[in-house]
Nucleic acid binder design. Structure first.
Length: 423
RNA sequence: GGACAGGUGUCCGAGUGGUUGAAGGAGCACGCCUGGAAAGUGUGUGUAUCGCAAGGUACCGGGGGUUCGAAUCCCCCCCUGUCCGCCA
């Protein structure tokens, strides 16, 4: 959520930003509701002051007439307060629902554009492989080597589920441990996080689980959801807290399952395990001071690069354009791995993403810290994918396939897998 | 899941309808005392929000209710502890 005062004082900039992001939000309406809410609230507070004043007059001994007259006044105030309270609550909920539609401001350098085609390519790392044979996609490889099974998963759970089998299962564990080892060395505190979170935490992070197009599974009869990412639980971890940042930013890593509805997503570009209802992800999350977030964002991107350079996966880094940023992000970098089985002759496919959400999430979650002057300030939060297993598997399988149909394991993973080839 | 017992400020802990934003103590901060320290002693010490300020409002686990007035009475929920049951 943006600061309401900021919206009020910078409506034009906020409106321009909404337009750049191709989002549907009404800044003017927010300003109007904010004004009405404040007016209503100050009237209400005035009435409450009168009520408190009236009540304190009745502390001592009074004549019956005086007492009765005060009680009458009190009753009158009481009904006025009740009326104004419901009006104020009403305005507040309208205000908060309209305000939550307004996206975060974007970094001045974030490319302006509507779709991912307009993302700005920063660099390419590694070499796109050339094959002297027709490379298979991961679905074919997975079937031939008995690594991924879709049909029975569909029988058991539905489409876009899968059994990761045999060496692919080991590969998930190996990738997890590989990522965790790197993150621990960088000072991240590791945890395996809950796969379920409450709606208000989801909303604080910027998800809208009740929305029509929500990608989130809600658990019927509860106010809980399956998490789409550990960003939710790691961000909720310090919700409503005043945290201590005097020893530097808080770096957290979470291992979780991620559940996504992916309604309507189908076709060539979501085949196999590229877009699925459930996968495992190792996520980075950082709480820091406002002045630190830009440089930490670069650090997170570098860690992602280090992880995938280590895996010998060719990838490029893009600066995500405003239309593709999502609500909470101020700036976002994606790593896109080369996937030889994607599209006609291979294509880039997103494998990680790191966002600087500035104070957008922390404001609603109530995560603050005390600055040097003892003032309470809203933190900045950042998140980034260390490894999303399913997409990392695609990149590893498709890039490292060999003519005999086997898959070579990146050498850095061999100590974790115990095998160096899948055949 | 069942039965009790609890949930008050940074912490411990008093408080069962109005003079309590909250006794008392600890801690912390700043003084005094001391050669220095401990002890002692004095003063101060919550958060959020609106406001230039004065000041207002809200907050005693959360939500609702009763009342002119609620930390205090009533209802619902949550959490913690202990015991029992069940279980990986």
């Amino acid at each position: 959520m943006l600061d309401l005062k900021f919206i009020r004082d910078n409506v034009e900039a906020v409106k321009a930003n909404i337009q750049n992001r191709f989002m549907d939000a009404d800044a003017d309406l927010v300003v109007e509701l904010y004004g009405k809410y404040n007016e209503s609230l100050s009237k209400l507070e005035d009435l409450r002051a009168q009520r408190n004043d009236n009540a304190s007059k009745m502390k001592g001994k009074l004549s019956p007439e005086e007492r009765n007259s005060l009680i009458e006044q009190g009753k009158e105030l009481k009904s006025q307060i009740a009326e104004l309270e419901s009006e104020t609550t009403d305005l507040k909920s309208k205000l908060s629902s309209e305000a939550s539609k307004i996206p975060n401001m974007a970094h001045p350098d974030a490319p302006i554009g509507k779709e991912d085609k307009e993302n700005f390519q920063i660099k390419v790392c590694g070499t796109v492989p050339t094959f002297n044979f027709k490379p298979l996609d991961h679905v074919q490889l997975g079937e031939k080597l008995d690594l991924i099974e879709f049909e029975r998963a569909t029988k058991v759970s539905g489409s876009k589920f899968y059994f990761l089998k045999n060496q692919a299962a080991i590969l998930e564990l190996a990738l997890t441990r590989y990522a965790i080892d790197i993150l621990m060395k960088k000072g991240f505190k590791v945890s395996i996080t809950p796969d379920i979170a409450k709606v208000d935490i989801l909303e604080g992070i910027g998800f809208n689980p009740r929305g029509e197009e929500s990608n989130i599974y809600s658990i019927e009869g509860t106010d809980m959801c399956l998490v789409g990412t550990a960003e939710i639980t790691l961000g909720g971890y310090h919700a409503k807290e005043i945290i201590d940042l005097s020893n530097g930013p808080i770096f957290m890593a979470g291992i979780s399952h991620c559940f996504r509805r992916e309604a309507g997503a189908a076709g060539q570009y979501s085949k196999g395990i590229y877009r699925v209802h459930q996968f495992t992800k190792i996520e980075m999350f950082v709480y820091c001071k406002p002045e630190e977030s830009d440089s930490i964002h670069e650090q997170l991107r570098e860690i992602e690069e280090e992880i995938f350079n280590g895996l010998e996966v060719p990838f490029r880094v893009v600066d995500t354009c405003t239309g593709d940023l999502g609500s909470p992000a101020y700036r976002k970098y994606d790593l896109e791995a080369w996937m030889p089985g994607r599209g006609e002759n291979g294509d880039w496919g997103e494998i990680t993403s790191t966002s600087n959400c500035t104070d957008y999430q922390a404001r609603r979650l109530g995560v603050r810290y005390k600055d040097d002057e003892g003032k309470t300030v809203i933190c900045h939060t950042l998140n980034g994918t260390a490894i999303a297993i399913s997409r990392a598997l695609i990149a590893i399988m498709e890039n490292n396939q060999q003519e005999d149909g086997s898959i070579k394991i990146p050498s850095i993973l061999v100590p974790y897998t115990g095998f160096d080839v899948i055949k």
